[in-house]
């Protein structure tokens, strides 16, 4: 397993994409800190990157990487190693490198300009979102043999979670606006990792006051010990479920 992982990490480093991604995150974070000294506002601006760019890069990069190393996977499977080892090795390699890229790219400027709870929450949500979307990308990769199609599916996942789902949510809220929706929306939020990450982040930033009753309700939930545990658990399920499903498919798949 470690040896497989080592080869994959070497491979990823050779493509230089990860370095580029790290540099991009580093420069944007650094730039934002230069523009604004208020760390709260910087974190708010970074939130857009975390919610949009991180999932997008994670999905596209993972899918492309998976198909580019298809021959390597086939070669490895010809050796006496388990399918799950190879597959999980691939996953770990991609996920680790993306997470490290994110943590260095965003974390180093944060460390330089002063670390606080907001920034830590952002790092946490960024890392979790990376893991979730790498999982989803792997799922879309094993669903089909065609690279273009797989990228299409991965992008669809991204589009669905960052845009379409919110539209549907708004529609639900609109249709049932006569009813108390707080608890239901809380459940619906759990079905979208991007929304969950966004709300955890927003509540951290003390702007829940603007969110009226709904905000107060969420604050109480996410601020409580149970809320933190539950939301982490839900995000964990979002990581594990797609990759477990993907591995199941991969194990039975005729390569």
């Amino acid at each position: 397993m470690t040896r497989v992982l080592k080869y994959i990490l070497y491979d990823i480093l050779r493509t230089r994409f990860i370095l580029l991604y790290t540099a991009f995150l580093f420069i944007s974070t650094f730039g934002l800190y230069q523009l604004d000294s208020d760390s709260g506002k910087v974190v708010l601006s970074l939130l857009n990157i975390v919610l949009m760019v991180v999932p997008l890069v994670s999905t596209v990069f993972s899918t492309i990487h998976f198909f580019n190393s298809y021959e390597f996977i086939e070669l490895m499977l010809a050796q006496p190693v388990k399918r799950s080892t190879v597959f999980l090795g691939e996953y770990m390699g991609v996920a680790c490198s993306l997470c490290v890229a994110f943590v260095t790219g965003v974390g180093v400027p944060i460390l330089l300009f002063g670390i606080n709870a907001n920034a830590l929450t952002m790092l946490y949500t960024g890392v979790t979102l990376t893991l979730v979307f790498v999982s989803l990308a792997f799922l879309s990769s094993v669903l089909t043999r065609d690279k273009a199609k797989a990228i299409g599916i991965a992008l669809l996942f991204w589009l669905y979670f960052s845009l379409i789902y919110d539209g549907l949510l708004l529609w639900v809220v609109y249709s049932f606006s006569d009813y108390p929706l707080e608890k239901i929306t809380l459940v619906l939020i759990a079905f979208n990792p991007v929304d969950l990450a966004r709300i955890i982040m927003l509540l951290q930033l003390d702007i829940s006051a603007l969110m009226g009753f709904t905000g107060a309700f969420y604050q109480e939930f996410f601020g409580s010990y149970l809320g933190i545990v539950l939301s982490t658990l839900v995000l964990f399920i979002w990581i594990v479920l797609p990759i477990a499903l993907a591995q199941r498919i991969f194990n039975r798949k005729d390569l």
């Binding site: 919110d166 929306t185 939020i189």
Partner: peptide, 20 residues
């Protein structure tokens, strides 16, 4: 306007959808 009519819609705040 949307939140003024439907306070629960506030949970979409700062999402990409709202921006668009």
């Amino acid at each position: 306007m949307v939140i003024e009519h439907m306070p629960s819609a506030v949970l979409l705040w700062r999402s990409f959808f709202v921006f668009l």
